[in-house]
């Protein structure tokens, strides 16, 4: 069976960043790759193939879609003339089935990205402006959840309110051994386009993690992104409260600006603050970068970051990377 997209693709040829529909099937393949050259404080120069990610989605019925993302992390590391693949790990980022009841009501079952803030939902290297990721976008909560979700767009609410409600009882599908996954969780995320150029969102999650059973955490967050004419300002703020008291609480946020410098060159600046549980005071991180966005699918990034009061070993230093969406 063919779709409209396949017919158009047959006419114009494969385009980078648009995926590839397997001929005579309902299967679409896509993905992204990213590699970086780092000189972070206290470590030697490192060349790393950070991620090779493959998306696969299959739509056997008009209202049913199966989606998966598998990612080969750190497949190759070159450090001081030593090449290694010891850190390689095949991660299951997402694996779910979506059933569309209507635009306003969709059901998802499986492993998905935790809908907290905006960065975690679009974290692929070609989609973001910096190689490093703000701490508030991944430290206070597990970035993936296995469970069920209801989501949709309420088009009757102004310009369309996006919502997602989810729950998990743990049992993570192929849990990443580097992450402390959910034991139990429920939460919600709302996102609304205030105008064509401004999107705002709020997040809430109540959860318990596998390695900290008995400790219940509440996370609240706000996010906003304004973009126009190549300029972009984005921010995320988050507070995590714990049943164990203030010492287990975390909070932080970032504000990031992007400005076009002419042609395909962009300047990026970011300030972030993060206070990890048990750490006092929090870390302040400043970042300045220069990006070259070759086209919609390919981006070269360079950045330098410097931390103040860095008692949690937050990464700081120089990073150069290339990322491509295919």
């Amino acid at each position: 069976m063919l779709s409209a997209h396949q017919a158009a693709a047959d006419d114009t040829g494969y385009q980078l960043g648009h995926g590839w529909q397997v001929p005579d099937t309902d299967l679409t393949l896509g993905g992204y790759a990213a590699s970086s050259l780092d000189k972070v404080q206290g470590r030697p120069w490192t060349l790393d193939v950070n991620s090779l990610s493959l998306f696969l989605w299959w739509q056997p019925l008009e209202r049913l879609k199966l989606f998966s993302e598998t990612e080969l992390e750190n497949s190759l590391t070159v450090q001081q003339r030593r090449t290694s693949s010891d850190g390689a790990y095949l991660a299951l980022e997402r694996l779910y089935a979506d059933w569309t009841q209507s635009d306003a009501l969709n059901f998802r079952v499986g492993k998905f990205l935790t809908p907290v803030g905006r960065w975690n939902l679009i974290h692929a290297a070609p989609l973001v402006w910096t190689t490093s990721r703000p701490l508030i976008t991944f430290e206070p909560f597990p970035t993936n959840a296995t469970g069920a979700m209801a989501y949709g767009t309420l088009t009757s609410v102004g310009a369309g309110l996006d919502y997602s409600l989810y729950g998990s009882i743990g049992k993570e599908l192929r849990p990443n051994h580097r992450l402390d996954t959910f034991n139990k969780a429920y939460g919600a995320h709302l996102s609304y386009p205030v105008q064509d150029y401004l999107q705002v969102g709020i997040s809430f999650a109540n959860f318990e993690q596998i390695n900290e059973r008995g400790e219940r955490k509440n996370l609240v967050g706000v996010d906003a992104t304004w973009s126009r004419g190549g300029y972009e300002v984005s921010t995320e703020l988050g507070w995590r409260f714990s049943s164990e008291g203030d010492n287990s609480a975390e909070k932080g946020g970032f504000i990031q600006g992007v400005a076009p410098l002419g042609g395909k060159l962009y300047a990026v600046g970011r300030y972030e603050y993060f206070r990890e549980s048990g750490a006092q005071p929090g870390v302040n991180l400043w970042l300045a970068g220069l990006d070259y966005r070759w086209n919609r699918a390919l981006i070269l990034k360079s950045e330098y970051s410097k931390a103040v009061d860095n008692r949690i070993d937050a990464q700081e230093g120089f990073q150069l990377s290339v990322a491509v969406l295919f």
């Binding site: 409209a4 997209h5 017919a7 158009a8 960043g17 648009h18 995926g19 679409t28 896509g30 998306f55 989605w57 879609k65 989606f67 939902l121 679009i122 692929a124 070609p126 989609l127 105008q195 064509d196 150029y197 973009s227 126009r228 004419g229 190549g230 919609r296 699918a297 969406l325």
Partner: peptide, 23 residues
């Protein structure tokens, strides 16, 4: 409210979630 090239980031985000732009 904007020219097609300013929607590139938007379509990248949707593509990341398995949604393609109009044919």
């Amino acid at each position: 409210g904007m020219p097609p090239d300013q929607l590139d980031a938007y379509w990248n985000e949707l593509y990341f979630h398995g949604v393609l732009p109009p044919t």
